[in-house]
């Protein structure tokens, strides 16, 4: 199961910026088990965003966001497509793979609502090329939904190096340059200004699993219940 943690609401709002309308997309897979996603968490985020004056145009949980075909097919319905069209941003409650998969097919700037800390042993479905670096400090909201940690051979955080060669990486002529992919995605979204934002050096301590999460990994909710001490009957 993927270990994820909610980003502070303030950070999510910061990433949404001045945009007014947001579509909420959640994964019904791992984040439900990690208790960071699912219908309930989406409703909670919706309330927070509305409190901050944002319009939530629609909200939907898809079984596995890492499956792009599945995500795409859920927007065939005209009503859903209209909700998506109306939104300036898509806030995604899933691991970094789900955020990247949504960004790759929805044609909207995405905002990650979670940080992904570990993919542990079971990684949900993994049908396509998007990879999550488990950095614990998701920056997909500023990179057009393309992960610089996994697509850039050097995991650079402030843009392309001099090794980019006709769209490919200096490491291999078969490997796409991650930052050029980011540039092209942001250009298509009309958001190249995002490239100008200064990103601080990474905090590598964030990719360590904190003790409280290490001890409370429960894939099956039943398992977590069995672990709970029996409640004392109160008079």
């Amino acid at each position: 199961m993927l270990l994820t943690e909610a980003k502070p609401v303030g950070e999510v709002l910061n990433l949404i910026g001045a945009d007014k309308s947001v579509f909420l997309l959640g994964c019904g897979g791992c984040p439900v088990g990690a208790q960071t996603g699912g219908e309930e968490k989406l409703a909670g985020l919706k309330a927070e965003l509305e409190k901050a004056g944002k319009k939530v145009t629609g909200s939907m949980v898809v079984d596995f966001l890492c499956n792009k075909a599945l995500v795409g097919s859920r927007f065939f319905a005209p009503a859903r497509a209209a909700q998506l069209r109306e939104a300036s941003r898509v806030a995604v409650v899933s691991c970094g793979v789900g955020v990247q998969s949504a960004a790759a097919i929805l044609g909207k700037p995405v905002v990650p609502a979670l940080n992904t800390i570990s993919t542990n042993a079971v990684q949900g479905l993994w049908p396509s090329e998007e990879r999550c670096g488990q950095c614990g400090d998701c920056m997909l909201g500023m990179t057009g939904g393309v992960c610089p940690i996994t697509t850039c051979s050097k995991s650079l955080v402030n843009g392309t190096c001099g090794g980019t060669n006709k769209g490919k990486c200096e490491v291999s002529p078969e490997k796409d340059c991650g930052w050029l992919m980011i540039y092209k995605r942001l250009k298509a979204l009309g958001r190249t200004d995002d490239l100008r934002k200064m990103n601080a050096p990474r905090d590598h301590s964030k990719s360590d699993i904190p003790d409280r999460l290490r001890k409370s990994v429960h894939w099956a909710l039943e398992y977590s219940k069995a672990e709970e001490p029996p409640k004392q009957a109160t008079a």
Binding site: K154, S155, V157, N158, C161, E170, A200
Partner: peptide, 26 residues
Amino acid sequence: TGDHVVAGDHKGAMPVYDLDSVGLLQ
């Protein structure tokens, strides 16, 4: 930033890039 280690003669070395060229200036 620095050429990746695969360009050199110690291809199995760990590429660090803890800071990028912007971070080093900072």
